[in-house]
Design a protein around this nucleic acid. Structure first.
Lengths: 249, 249
DNA sequence: CAATTTAATATGTACGAACATAACAAGAGG
DNA sequence: CCTCTTGTTATGTTCGTACATATTAAATTG
């Protein structure tokens, strides 16, 4: 059964996304929401803490709870994305389109192993793809991504991909049903390599953000790694950091 | 008065930092801690949520609360830093050394204004400096940073800097006493410019991370902006993203 | 002795209550 | 009309309780 505070959080998130609570508006009070959802104020507060942590609302003593922002901005100057929560990372997966370029089985040599953070010899399924913004006229890719999936899930992935299922986002999670508890993220700056210049429609050597993500289960099991190259002129990593407690005495 | 959950969180953080609770060990149960600190279990849980959010501990139903990690790694291959909370950003300020290169009053023209996110004509105090790792033999700087401080605080900053006060970190906060509620952060990839190559001891055109931070008060007042250039071979931005609730049914 | 079941345990979820405190709004006074 | 004071209000903090549930450890069974 869905937990109550999670239900409240989801309902409010959807209401905000729908425009029922526009940006800048003030939500009903915690007591009113408690009445509406037939839960206690504590439960409403737990939900509110989620919304606040994700940056969706801001709360102030008696200033009410204000709707702050909705979705990441897709401005004219590329894709701006917050990536400081697991939810935000998944959102990037749903808000962009994936175009698969290559699917291959690989065995990690020492170099790849250190990149992926596994022992050499481990088997992976590698899916290389480009990502674009849906509905854009000029289909300039935002990034090149190599996703490495635990070999144990390889067959299932191939089957579902053949059937054109939309299994992307966090692949293993959708396939195995097991939920990720942790993502380790490494961000650095690199140049666009010669090989990637053409598919990315970028000039070789252009500055790019390199993002490596390791997806882990609760047991610290490594199930999936993604290596992405984002040309700097098309993508920026933008976050709002909020103090954990909004007010102070 | 310090809030009780904040006190508990701070006490536990210090105990972990001191080594009284080594990495990998399991903390006392929530009930035991409630007894020790003479607070309710709810308060202990509020403290635990802080520690969990900052990645210091992990919790599992009856697996106990485990100490996960302490400080950011200062490995041989540069500086690895999590920057997904305000606390982590401030920590970077305390764990590196600042070497001031230049102090100047500036008036924002249209270009600078768009970079800083302010109206053109606004007055700022600009402090340019290099940051190094304390105690390192080879004093290779980690980054070049231009900090722009609201002109209203300029005099006070100059005075305190002349007196060799350690006022850095988030400058305006230490000077004015007003606390930042929000930091907006923008991360992109750039090349090291000719002018910065020499002070940074890097080759011009080398790949670098560009990090822009806007420090805001509760009223959305912009008080300070920092623009940093991190050569990619000396710095990586590394975070662990944890799911808000650790377990699930 | 290995495999399974059962019991104990610590965290997760949820409720209800009470008081503190910062923001805002309305009214009093100059 | 502006300023200051006062009162109301909604969130912040803290307490106590109860039950759910995943994990570990002990006990039972084959």
């Amino acid at each position: 059964m869905e937990k109550r505070y999670a239900f409240v959080a989801r309902a409010l998130t959807e209401a905000i996304a729908d425009g029922r609570h526009p940006v800048g508006s003030v939500l009903p009070t915690e007591f009113e929401l408690a009445d509406q959802f037939a839960v206690s104020r504590s439960t409403v507060r737990a939900a509110m803490q989620e919304l606040q942590a994700s940056g969706l609302v801001s709360r102030k003593r008696n200033a009410g709870t204000r709707v702050e922002a909705t979705s990441p901005a897709k401005g004219g100057d590329g894709f701006t994305q917050a990536l400081n929560t697991i939810e935000a990372v998944q959102q990037f997966g749903t808000e962009t389109e994936r175009h698969v370029q290559r699917v291959a089985d690989v065995v990690a040599d020492s170099e790849l192993a250190s990149q992926l953070g596994c022992r050499p010899g481990r088997r992976w399924l590698c899916i290389s793809s480009l990502r674009t913004i849906p509905g854009e006229v000029t289909q300039t890719p935002i990034c090149w991504t190599d996703v490495y999936i635990d070999g144990a899930f390889a067959d299932e992935v191939r089957t579902k991909m053949a059937g054109h299922h939309e299994i992307f986002g966090t692949l293993v999670e959708k396939i195995s049903g097991r939920r990720f508890v942790e993502i380790r993220q490494d961000i650095s700056a690199v140049g666009v390599s010669d090989a990637m210049a053409e598919p990315l429609k970028a000039t070789a050597g252009a500055h790019a953000l390199s993002i490596r993500r390791q997806y882990l289960f609760a047991s610290n099991e490594l199930a999936e790694v993604s290596l992405s190259i984002h040309p700097a002129d098309r993508y920026r990593y933008s976050t709002r950091l909020l103090r954990r407690q909004d007010t102070n005495g």
